[in-house]
């Protein structure tokens, strides 16, 4: 019997041999209006959720589940990144249960779960930078609180069969360099990232560490924290997929690397060439590669370009 999408995705995360297509997914596929005529679940605002009847809530949950499933089916995604809305534990479980009821164990289900600080917003950046030097304990305390909350939520989902992993999506880097110097990252972030990953692993979950940008100066540390995979190996941040795979391919699965900039604004020829480069480099150096954009299928990305990328994947990203 053929492996399910979930089994193939998990094999890739474990860097085990597979045959057939390279597994794939997207952190978010926002183009649901163009693809299906449906508003993406993350773009919905349920101000009166608690005022709704159970029947109405169920209709919304069912529709959101259907959108995730339709996306996975149309594009042969092996995993579904669920963005629960509303995001409380009860409704999160309800949405996950609904997807499982409709698809069984076919897909690998994941959701957000990072407990580490990311690049602050423009408004907070100076204050945060000052805190890094003058009050680092406050940043440690903040991450400890996030960790405690995340551990409780993960414990509540552990063993239920509803969720398979967490994507840790705190961004650490700009195109040029990480926000955090390697020394600061080692002191302020890495210990919390490791605790986060260890906690999820102890509860039976996989972890995928996402960050955009040039993470070369801190990638050793990220890999040492032990995630199953690193996403997005951002070419706009000068990350080289082949080099990352050569250096870390025996320790992590690599995900992503199709250049979103070229996909959006390059010529068709440039976009095609980049997709082929990504596939070629990702399939080199053993297994443990999952195909995706270097960010996500974001709002404004032309659907035809995403489908162009899919066409090449379908025809060429195959382990023989």
């Amino acid at each position: 019997m053929a492996d399910t999408h979930k089994q193939r995705f998990e094999k890739a995360l474990r860097r085990e041999p597979i045959v057939g297509h390279v597994p794939q997914f997207e952190l978010v596929f926002f183009l649901t209006m163009e693809a299906f005529g449906k508003v993406h679940p993350s773009h919905r605002f349920y101000e009166q959720w608690n005022q709704m009847s159970h029947a109405e809530q169920k209709l919304h949950i069912e529709e959101m589940a259907d959108i995730y499933i339709m996306t996975a089916k149309r594009y042969d995604h092996d995993a579904i990144f669920v963005h629960p809305n509303p995001g409380d534990l009860e409704n999160t479980k309800w949405l996950l249960e609904t997807i499982r009821e409709k698809t069984g164990d076919e897909y690998f289900l994941m959701m957000h779960g990072d407990t580490t600080v990311s690049i602050p917003t423009g408004d907070d950046m100076i204050d945060f930078s000052v805190r890094m030097y003058e009050d680092p304990d406050s940043i440690h305390d903040q991450q400890k609180r996030w960790q405690e909350d995340a551990a409780k939520r993960a414990a509540a989902l552990s063993g239920t069969g509803l969720l398979d992993g967490f994507a840790l999506c705190s961004d650490y880097a700009f195109n040029v360099n990480p926000f955090f110097s390697p020394d600061i990252f080692a002191e302020l972030v890495a210990p919390h990232l490791k605790e986060c990953i260890d906690t999820y692993r102890s509860l039976g979950f996989y972890t995928i560490k996402h960050t955009d940008g040039n993470i070369n100066p801190i990638l050793d540390q990220i890999v040492d924290c032990g995630p199953d995979a690193v996403h997005s190996i951002d070419p706009q941040g000068h990350m080289n997929l082949l080099e990352v795979r050569k250096k870390y391919g025996d320790r992590i699965c690599t995900i992503g690397n199709v250049n979103c900039g070229l996909l959006q604004t390059g010529t068709v020829e440039e976009a095609e060439a980049d997709v082929r480069r990504c596939i070629r480099e990702g399939m080199a150096e053993g297994y443990g590669f999952i195909f995706s954009t270097s960010n996500c299928a974001y709002t404004g990305l032309p659907l035809e370009r995403y489908e162009l990328m899919q066409k090449i994947w379908r025809e060429e990203a195959i382990y023989r």
Binding site: I126, S129, M132, F174, N177, P178, F179, S181, I184, P217
Partner: peptide
């Protein structure tokens, strides 16, 4: 030269 990073620039600018 990548000897300092953005936070160090920001606190110097401040």
């Amino acid at each position: 030269k990548n000897e300092v990073f953005v936070p160090e620039v920001l606190i110097a600018a401040r």
